[in-house]
């Protein structure tokens, strides 16, 4: 999560806290706070529950509540490359490096985002693919940046790592909401931040957040850590494994 976004969120919460006395509050709970990746992991779903709490002093207003749930995975810096045809061959030429982009980003809402809040608000809290902040390492903006940003989001969506559900948040009760965010198998490990925003009549009334972790466990964790931290030792194990397998096969299938 980049610094600008975190600041904006903090500022928003502060404002909300100041006028808390007469406002709605959000209670958020997750179906799990720990997703474990084991050898049989093929993806899972994390359900976000919540309730809109109104104290006695809350002024009854017209209009309906809107809820937006944003799930952000750990940040990563990615290079977006574009292929061009050179001498009949397609090869990577132009590239943009986008700093600290969410590796996973899901936005679920009770209605399409543009019906819920104006663009300025969505931009401030980085709600929705169209309002994500892109910081290119190349510095100053150049013509054609748009194409790289669009491609970034498109590729992430195709990989199932960026997802949206404009009617994904449902209200089982008048002040109770829920949504299930699908976590695909190729998900990166790390801490996932769940931000929930309450809107009414285009105004943000409350926000709250929660977090869950995604981590490899057992053998997967052990193997991954070993390969990362002791690459050479891990390599030796792989070679030993190869020699053992080869030797066993040679002995088992001996024909002469």
């Amino acid at each position: 999560m980049n610094a600008a976004f975190r600041l904006a969120l903090l500022a928003g919460m502060l404002v909300l806290a100041l006028r808390q006395s007469s406002a709605e509050q959000l209670v958020v709970a997750l179906s799990t706070d720990h997703v474990k990746i084991s050898s049989s992991f093929t993806g899972t779903g994390v359900t976000v529950f919540g309730a809109i709490e109104r104290d006695a002093g809350t002024i009854s207003r017209g209009g309906v509540y809107d809820i937006v749930v944003v799930v952000r995975g750990p940040d990563e810096t990615l290079v977006t490359r574009r292929k061009e045809r050179v001498a009949g061959i397609w090869l990577n030429r132009a590239a943009r490096t986008f700093l600290d982009m969410p590796s996973f980003y899901a936005v679920h809402s009770s209605r399409p985002l543009n019906d819920i809040a104006p663009a300025e608000t969505l931009t401030r809290y980085q709600i929705g693919f169209d309002y994500l902040a892109f910081r290119a390492r190349e510095g100053r903006p150049e013509p054609g940046d748009e194409a790289f940003r669009d491609a970034f989001v498109r590729l992430k969506r195709e990989a199932g790592l960026y997802r949206d559900a404009p009617y994904g948040v449902t209200f089982p009760g008048s002040a109770v909401f829920q949504t299930t965010v699908d976590v695909p198998a190729n998900v990166p490990v790390g801490t996932y931040r769940v931000s929930v925003f309450l809107f009414r009549d285009s105004a943000m009334l409350a926000a709250n957040s929660a977090a869950f972790g995604i981590a490899k466990t057992g053998f997967e964790q052990f193997t991954f850590d070993l390969a990362r931290r002791n690459g050479y030792f891990y390599g030796l194990i792989c070679i030993a494994l190869a020699l053992l397998t080869g030797w066993l096969a040679g002995v088992l299938f001996r024909r002469d």
Partner: peptide, 10 residues
Amino acid sequence: PDELFSLATL
């Protein structure tokens, strides 16, 4: 190619 763009880490 169907997709001209690709993503990769540093």
